[in-house]
Design a protein around this nucleic acid. Sequence first.
DNA 1: TACTGTTTAGCGTTCT
DNA 2: AGAACGCTAAACAGTA
Length: 319
Amino acid sequence: MPRPGKNSYSDQKPPYSYISLTAMAIQSSSEKMLPLSDIYKFIMDRFPYYRENTQRWQNSLRHNLSFNDCFIKIPRRPDQPGKGSFWALHPDCGDMFENGSFLRRRKRFKLLRVEHSPCKSTPVLHSYHSHPHTQHSLHQSHHHSGKLGMGHPEYLGTMGRLSHFQSYTLSGGQSGSFKHPFAIESLIGRDYKGVMASGLPIASVMHHLGYPVPAQLGGMVNSVWPHVGMLSESVPVSSDYPPFSVAMKGLYHHPGTQSMPAVPVPIKPTPTLGTVPSLTGMTQGVTQICPRTASLMERDGTPLTEEKSASLHPALLQS
DNA sequence: TACTGTTTAGCGTTCT
DNA sequence: AGAACGCTAAACAGTA
């Protein structure tokens, strides 16, 4: 192992999984979503290692995007020409790297799904006309099992039978009464007034998708998430890895509630990273879209009406 | 045609 | 030991 130092990692494989890297890229964007090509670009810009063998790692990355439920696909609007969709992080995947390792997740983020059909489709961020409060996760229990898309009749059918506004649940023994720390009711319950589940700058996404953004929402987002956009700033931390300044963890972290090392600790022995404090909580507090609001966003670009806006959770709109 | 997205498969590593 | 996770390869379909 080369001695950690200036540029010593420049062409070494970064100690981050593709999921981490993708999450970084998405997080780095002001809109919290990126097309595939921009994810590639982000990774190649910051990690010279990935400027080679592009076919190999890009294939892997695409596989990860499709396979992992923590990534959701956001279709382009008709007036947004371009290839492919936007990719964002799932509303409830902010806790994947709880142990601080960005090489291996503490637990895999999985949606709960009914397993019947081998077909799979990535959850797409648009309404499928289910009850707006019933967007839900269905269990999926096997690594390579089939999945049902949100648009699948069985998926919807199951959703329809679910109780009113249950939070997303994580599989792996945490379903049931488990409340994800970034679930909206958890946040509201802890007096995170105005903070969305995991904090996606929803006004930003809504704006991006071409929906009118309620002034209260925009203002709330700006005031609650002053760090939004920080990622694009270049804060010199290490010459080995570029910084990703997301201060989200700090917003949620309370002493004694979670243990998160100040510096990410790769499970696999890797050279000392030096100090990469800005990585702390990068994927922990990944900013997400509120499922409730996601369901309001129609695939066909139907404007978000005032009624729809008003039906957003009151906690999100109160000034 | 190149890119994007999905799926399957196999293997290695790490965790429980 | 088995499960879970991560990486890679590859085939294939859809699309700009």
